[in-house]
Design a protein around this nucleic acid. Sequence first.
DNA 1: GCACAAGCGGAACGTGGAGTCCGGTTCTGT
DNA 2: ACAGAACCGGACTCCACGTTCCGCTTGTGC
Lengths: 198, 198
Amino acid sequence: MRKDAQANRERLLEAADRMFREHGVEVSVGEIADAAGVGRGTLFRNFRSKEELIAAVLSVRVGELLEYGRELLETDPDDAEVTFTFLEGLVRRQEENRALLQTATDEMFAAPEMQRQHVELLELFGAMLARGKRAGAIRPEATATDMLMLVKGLCMFAPVEQPLSAETILRHLDLVRAALTTPAYSRPLRGEPASHAA
Amino acid sequence: MRKDAQANRERLLEAADRMFREHGVEVSVGEIADAAGVGRGTLFRNFRSKEELIAAVLSVRVGELLEYGRELLETDPDDAEVTFTFLEGLVRRQEENRALLQTATDEMFAAPEMQRQHVELLELFGAMLARGKRAGAIRPEATATDMLMLVKGLCMFAPVEQPLSAETILRHLDLVRAALTTPAYSRPLRGEPASHAA
DNA sequence: GCACAAGCGGAACGTGGAGTCCGGTTCTGT
DNA sequence: ACAGAACCGGACTCCACGTTCCGCTTGTGC
């Protein structure tokens, strides 16, 4: 691979990343190519389709999240708080991921690369929760999947319009903290089954 | 208005509702018109644009939710549990709303009809939470907005692919229950600010 | 039952975006 | 330095979808 080709690939990834952040995932490939300063041909030589480009960018983002989490796991000495510190960092990054996550939910997660990252994410969450449980801060039955649920909620709940206030971030974290730290309190379901009759 | 015109409008709403549920909001207006057994012209005579059709369907759905919640508020005598019973019913209906909610988040909520329903939803939540607080089941600082956050998370977190298992529903409800019943436990933010440097 | 308008359906249009192709350009091996 | 291949860019194709238009049909007032 020629070195200018490599450079173009990276500029495309960066440009796509920025454009998705700023204008959502519905920007045209043309605009992305323009932003990267290359032609459409070059874009499609590097990524067979727009979908593949989106998946590539998403994978980079998840990779960054994994990296952040792993570093924190190694460096933060506070067993009780490491999970929440991580979640806080995650929410701060949330802006950047919302738009992407919303379109990514469906078939894209089937790609082997994504599957792998999914597993890695669960492992990371598991390790964090384990430390919290050891310190008595996290309820013992909380699972990595629970945490993934909450994280997804965190990434999704807000309208894509405007940046979130620090206030809102704190509020949401507080709710999640409560969800993870309380002992479970179950009861049988009792609502009626779903039906769309009027 | 002629009575066949009225009937067509309703068939269109029903068909759109069903198609959005089954194939997501990206189905073409052509398919919706076909499903309703009318021509495209008829569709556009009733709804000036596709967006207006989506908004109409969404409004119906939210209306149903409001109706369900209000009835529950009147008939369920259990102050401590009414909020959670409501949430359970809501999650059961969630399937039907996910796809719609995901596209609706942005400009559509600006419509006056939607604004009104938004306020009504907050009022409903407020009333439910008030009963829970009176019974000592809900933490006193929980707000209707908190509840809306959690509800949105509930509607969004899962991939749109398959129906949710009863297990998953229970699990998620359990997390939300924990979030609303625990006393708040705040601490200052300490993570680093968001940055997308590698 | 008739006339007329309101309503209907689907063919046709315009737009916009994904993906292709080829003549020109730039890197690399010798 | 030169040949040739890899690569570039943007004009072009193709298609899908939202929207419009018009000749025909059907309900309604007299």
